[in-house]
Simulated assay, not measured.
Amino acid sequence: MALQPSLRPLLIAGRPDAPHTLDIFLDYVCPFSGKMAVAIDTVLKPLLDAGGKYDGKVKLIFRNQVQPWHGSSTFTHEAGLAAARIAPEKFWTYSLLLLKRQQEFYDIPTSTLSPIQIRAKLAELATEVGISADEFKDLLTNKSTPNGGVSVTDELKYTIKFSRQNGVHVSPSVLWDGLLVNEVSSSWGSDEWNKFLAEKVTV
Rank of each mutant, 00 (worst) to 15 (best):
G14H: 03
G51Y: 07
T127W: 15
D138R: 11
T21K: 07
F196N: 03
S33P: 00
V181H: 05
G149P: 02
L122C: 11
D154V: 05
L97E: 07
T112I: 14
P31H: 11
A13E: 03
E78N: 03
S151Q: 12
G80R: 10
I116P: 01
Y28M: 15
V184Y: 08
D191I: 10
A79F: 02
A79P: 00
D191M: 11
I61N: 10
S163K: 02
Q67M: 13
W193Q: 03
Q65K: 03
S114C: 15
D191F: 09
L47D: 08
G80W: 15
V43S: 04
A37N: 02
V168Y: 01
Y158D: 06
G71M: 15
F62M: 11
V58H: 02
D23E: 12
K53P: 02
L48I: 11
T21E: 09
P46D: 07
D27F: 03
A37F: 02
G52A: 05
L11M: 10
L47P: 08
P19N: 10
G148A: 05
L44V: 08
Q67P: 00
E155Y: 13
L11Q: 12
A126N: 07
L26M: 13
Y54P: 04
D134I: 09
E89H: 13
L44C: 01
G178N: 00
E128V: 12
V38Y: 03
S171T: 03
T76G: 00
F105R: 10
S173F: 06
T42C: 08
I131V: 10
L180F: 04
G189F: 10
S72Q: 14
S163P: 01
K200E: 01
S6L: 04
A133Q: 14
E78R: 07
F25K: 00
F162T: 01
L44F: 06
S114H: 10
F32M: 06
Y106V: 05
A13T: 07
K137W: 06
R164K: 10
T159P: 02
C30I: 05
S72P: 15
P68Y: 15
S95M: 11
V201Q: 09
L140E: 00
L122Y: 12
G130A: 06
